[in-house]
Amino acid sequence: MSRLLLPLEHPTPAAGHDTAESLLHALQQLPRRVQQVFLLNRLDQLDFAAIAARLDLPLASIERHMDQALQAGRSRRDGLASAAGRWYVRLQSPEVTACERIDFRRWLDAAPANLQAFHDTELRWRSLLAPARQLGHDGWYRQGRAALSLGGCSVALGLGVAALLLLGFCA
């Protein structure tokens, strides 16, 4: 998602563009897995299929996580921005169909506000690079799936050892 889908001849800044600090704060509020998917795409420029394979997740989850990251900090009431974000993410998926591309074009042509919302979404995507660099500065997101669930594994291991000790004392 590093390239723009539409040419920005005369980008007009939308009212209320977020600052880098507010975007960073919004990204930090996301679940760790969403952050990881977003950073793998934004910083390492991995496509959805590569992220799905690396993290052993379905493509639909990758799309959902990317949409969450793109919408971070936005008002949930802004339906047009949400729709533009969903289109932006969906068009990056390797599973997007020709019919969906036609539907997108129809949506884009249906109203000037749709085109503006999509341009604003692309500008927002660009503005997420600096906060992404701050969020992933130490490379934590490059760790595999096990790194994120290490806490759960240690709890399970502890419970297993406790059960074995308990069975040993009862026998």
Rank of each mutant, 00 (worst) to 15 (best):
Pro94Val: 03
Val96Asn: 05
Arg64Leu: 12
Pro112Phe: 02
Ile102Gly: 01
Leu80Cys: 05
Gly79Ile: 02
Arg74Met: 08
Ala83Ile: 00
Thr97Arg: 10
Asp78Gly: 00
Thr97Leu: 12
Pro58Ile: 05
Pro58Ala: 10
Thr97Lys: 11
Leu55Val: 07
Arg86Pro: 01
Gln92Ser: 11
Ala72Arg: 00
Gln68Val: 00
Glu100Gln: 15
Asp67Ser: 12
Ala84Ile: 03
Ser75Trp: 07
Met66Phe: 05
Ala83Met: 12
Val89Lys: 01
Arg76Cys: 08
Arg77Gly: 15
Val96His: 06
Ala69Tyr: 10
Asp109Leu: 13
Pro58Val: 13
Gln92Phe: 03
Arg76Ile: 13
Arg76Pro: 12
Leu55Pro: 04
Ser82Glu: 13
Ser93Tyr: 04
Gly79Ala: 09
Arg77Lys: 11
Ser82Met: 09
Pro112Gly: 04
Leu55Trp: 07
Arg76Gly: 15
Gln68His: 11
Asp109Glu: 12
Asp56Arg: 07
Gln71Thr: 10
Gly85Phe: 05
Glu63Gly: 01
Leu59Pro: 13
Ile62His: 04
Trp107Glu: 10
Cys99Arg: 08
Asp56Met: 02
Leu57Glu: 09
Ala52Thr: 01
Ser93Pro: 12
Ile62Lys: 03
Gln71Tyr: 06
Ala111Ser: 10
Ala98Val: 12
Met66His: 07
Ser93Leu: 02
Asp103Gln: 14
Gly73Lys: 01
Pro94Ala: 05
His65Leu: 00
Leu108Thr: 01
Arg105Phe: 11
Arg90Ser: 15
Ser82Gly: 07
Cys99Gly: 11
Asp109Trp: 03
Glu95Ile: 00
Cys99Ala: 08
Leu59Ile: 06
Ala69Glu: 11
Arg86Cys: 05
Gly79Glu: 13
Ala52Asp: 07
Arg86Asp: 04
Ala72Val: 12
Arg105Ile: 05
Leu80Thr: 00
Ala111Asn: 13
Asp67Met: 05
Arg86Asn: 08
Trp87Gly: 07
His65Lys: 01
Val89Gly: 04
Asp78Phe: 00
Ala69Gln: 04
Ala53Val: 02
Arg90Lys: 13
Met66Cys: 14
His65Cys: 11
Leu57Thr: 00
Ile102His: 09
Ile62Glu: 09
Ile51Leu: 11
Val96Met: 10
Trp87Ile: 09
Ser75Ile: 03
Ala84Val: 01
Arg90Cys: 15
